[in-house]
Simulated assay, not measured.
Amino acid sequence: MPGSEPATRPPRRRNAKLTRSAILQAALEEFSEMGHSGARVDRIAERAGVSKPMIYDYFGDKDGIYAAALREAYVQIREGEAELDLDMRQPEEAVRALVHFTMEHFRIKPWFIRMLNTENLRGGATVREMHDAAEIQSVLVDQLREILKQGIAQGIFRKGVDPVEFYIYIASLCYFPISNLHTLRAVFQAPIDEEWLKRHADGSADMVLAFLKDRSHASDSPENRN
């Protein structure tokens, strides 16, 4: 109507969850590319599309952002593992699925390995102060413990395998070709690409399953009777 005041739009409210997620992803990329000392909060803000003061409001300071990003790296891989529904798979299938997922996660989310490299260069100071670090890992450890238990019950896995040590074997086999991608290509001319990594994951799964195999009846096999 003529003479009436123009309608004013209410200010757009920022989705706090999405904003926090965007900051964490930007921080993962910045810290993984530049390391802890080389990372800059202003670049994280630019990557996330937010103001620098907003980042400080969310996380306090640079160390706070780094700690949150490191935690997020662990959360992301555990969330991806949860989607595998390992509990619904047969033991051998579950192990193969976990190996292939681990390799693929390291490949498509390189900031995970780089963040871990950065934290190890810093002596693990931040992860030791992470109050829920063990809790984040516990879900996978419990799943692996159950998978190993089922394999033993079915007579296909041997007893005495610690689930944490077993996961370290899996992570090691998947970690090395990604973390050393460029040097392996240069020194050994290894044709490391997506197809090569898939074959490596297949072989790694074969190796860890052979490690788990129950050999208590090996002496009864025909080749051992001669």
Rank of each mutant, 00 (worst) to 15 (best):
E29G: 02
N224A: 13
K17E: 12
K213L: 12
A210W: 10
D202W: 04
V139K: 13
E129P: 00
L209M: 11
W111K: 01
Q137I: 09
V50D: 03
K159L: 02
F166Y: 12
H200S: 13
R71L: 05
A73K: 00
E29Y: 07
G38L: 11
L173P: 00
E129R: 14
D202C: 04
D214E: 12
M130W: 09
D162S: 13
E92F: 00
W196M: 08
R107E: 09
E33T: 14
F157C: 06
V99D: 04
K62W: 06
T183V: 15
R47D: 03
P191A: 08
H200P: 02
D162I: 07
A171R: 05
M103R: 08
E104S: 10
H105C: 06
S32W: 04
L86R: 09
R199G: 05
R96D: 12
R78S: 12
M103C: 07
L212D: 07
A171G: 00
A68C: 05
L116K: 09
E194H: 13
R128Q: 03
I156A: 00
M34A: 10
T8P: 02
L144W: 03
T183P: 00
H200F: 03
F211M: 15
D202L: 06
I147F: 06
T102S: 12
E104W: 14
K159H: 09
I170N: 04
I168A: 15
T126W: 01
H200W: 14
D162L: 10
E30H: 03
R158N: 09
G160W: 08
F166E: 00
H105V: 01
E119N: 05
S37V: 15
K198S: 15
H182E: 14
A190Q: 08
A7W: 00
R145A: 15
D214F: 13
P6W: 01
Y56D: 12
S172C: 01
R78M: 14
G60Q: 04
M103S: 11
E83P: 00
